[in-house]
Design a protein around this nucleic acid. Structure first.
Lengths: 122, 122
DNA sequence: TAATTAAACTTGCATTTTGCAAGTTTAATA
DNA sequence: TATTAAACTTGCAAAATGCAAGTTTAATTA
């Protein structure tokens, strides 16, 4: 079994740097977005996100996010249902600030954005 | 001359994913933190941050952040002074939310954190 | 009950990104 | 004029990511 990073090494004591050591990568906040805003909870739901995460990275991130206490799961090994922990839910202001920035600076398809906006409760 | 990524490719139209395509890496928000909260503005000041960014990555990020319009610079090629653009300043709520999460979940050295808190205006 | 499906990984390998050490260029300073 | 130092640049090793394929075993279907 591949072993996930067990102890995140913080680069400094700065709270910003420490938080980025947890979720400052390309995929963690995408998974958390899926849980927080898009009602997703299973491996395959995450796998089918538009952004196209690959299976090994998805697995690594689910293990890591579980280890650091941002998510947990119920169900059998073959039917895991992931949910955000209380700690994970505390990232909501972060995602909200990020999406507000995104709405301001990325126009893209207006109709599509309207749908996203609705689903993200914005 | 090494060419920096010229057009960021967005993984999707999601505003969260798009924003993460800009600053969802290990170093960009550290540099922006240095400018926003720690009064830093030059290559060497960024280089001397506690987190220890390496020279090539720092250079890449400064080029990229300039290209995407989050920062810009004045001064000669040998004495560049970087500042946040209006767009870059719009990331302040993101950094604030991240640091609030960090303060809640990373204790570390109390005295040191108090100093950081002061310097971060929190 | 046996065969099939599919969800959740796992593995191997190529590509990309990052880290580290050292070197280069040229303004500013002594 | 010589030295310093700020801002890169380069080369190479290590780590992270991407991609395709394979594995395991619950759940479903025939």
């Amino acid at each position: 079994m591949k072993k996930a990073k067990e102890n995140i090494e913080n680069r400094s004591v700065c709270p910003i740097a420490c938080t980025l050591d947890l979720v400052g990568d390309k995929w963690s906040l995408i998974i958390i977005r899926d849980m927080m805003y898009l009602g997703k909870s299973t491996y395959n739901e995450f796998l089918n996100s538009k952004e196209g995460i690959s299976t090994n990275i998805l697995n690594d991130r689910l293990v890591m996010l579980t280890e650091v206490g941002l998510i947990n799961y119920t169900g059998t090994a073959k039917r895991k249902k992931y949910t955000l922990t209380k700690k994970g839910l505390k990232l909501k202001p972060v995602l909200e600030a990020i999406s507000l920035f995104g709405f301001k600076y990325f126009t893209g398809d207006k109709e599509q954005l309207k749908n996203i906006k609705r689903v993200l409760n914005l």
